[in-house]
Nucleic acid binder design. Structure first.
Ligand SMILES: [Mn+2]
Ligand SMILES: [Mn+2]
Ligand SMILES: [Zn+2]
Ligand SMILES: [Zn+2]
Lengths: 151, 151
DNA sequence: AAACCAAATGCAAAACGTTCGCAGCGCGTT
DNA sequence: AACGCGCTGCGAACGTTTTGCATTTGGTTT
């Protein structure tokens, strides 16, 4: 079963997200709504600082941290790590586990989504050979984008 | 040209490392010697805190940070990122660029070295399609080791 | 509609890994 | 042995993330 890419899934509506929260005995608050709206408007992983400033600082930075932790726990959001010590988050669509990768420009931080994951068979081989179970992976690509090559 | 795995390279002697430093107009100091000895004694990536405590705190933590930065710049050491916000370093052998991957137990942090890298052809494809140049990648595997499966 | 309560928020402080400034020390050279 | 620059130790600062606590708020019950 080949991966079809996470953008092939249909995004969740805000009311569906609200229902999800309430179904998990969580409140659909102003700050959480603001965070979800910001995430829904951006196709690439966002830093918490960026999410915070895009909410026009309607809520506290600590609240954004707490909101994203909750959303991550509920699997409504996926955390990514580009190796710079800053967490980034993407809103997940319905039925998407969020597993995918990125190509990041090391000069300007431009991001390209990589829909495919060709690493799954490798995962199985590694699991078998090592005796490890529940093997997953984190993979990100880095390079210099066309614009930055000209400069 | 297939990758032969970084452990197929022969490790550098301490005197060779000293010569490297001096050749680059750097000093072979007590702290740097201690750091290199600690790294040479460990086959897996080490955190800076661990390197520091293994030197029996003969030198300052800030000095360990500076030593590892220097060694990284001189390509004598390779930095790895397991996604937990803590830098890890491995001593490089002669002729090794250090590119390889790991399988990390999410319970006990046990590490297995993955010698192969099957991602190079994917790198080329991604570079071609996106117009990016100098494409590299970071890849780490995570799972539960045999010991932790029993617990 | 009012009361209720657990959950969530804002604010400030702290924790964490990491970096930096600076006075003094020590490696390599003369 | 003396010199000079690079390096060190120490403490302070950094940026991101977490936490404690008093107050507020969403969702529920009366
Ligand atoms: Mn993405
Ligand atoms: Mn390794
Ligand atoms: Zn993948
Ligand atoms: Zn690789």
């Amino acid at each position: 079963m080949p991966c079809r890419g996470h953008h092939h899934h249909k995004p969740r509506s805000l009311s569906e997200l609200a229902a999800r929260l309430r179904g998990g005995a969580k409140k659909f608050t102003g700050p959480r709504k603001a965070v979800l709206e910001v995430l829904a408007a951006h196709p690439h992983p966002m830093t918490i600082k960026d999410v915070h400033s895009e909410t026009k600082s309607e809520c506290d930075l600590a609240t954004v941290y707490r909101a994203l932790h909750l959303l991550e726990e509920m699997e409504l959001v996926k955390r990514f790590d580009f190796g710079d010590g800053i967490a980034r988050f993407e809103l997940l669509a319905e039925g998407d586990d969020g597993h995918h990768h990125h190509l990041i420009c090391t000069e300007c931080s431009d991001i390209i989504e990589i829909e495919e994951c060709f690493t799954e068979s490798l995962e199985e081989k590694i699991a078998e050979r090592s005796g490890f179970k529940a093997v997953t992976h984190k993979l990100e690509f880095f390079g210099i984008c066309p614009d930055c090559q000209k400069r």
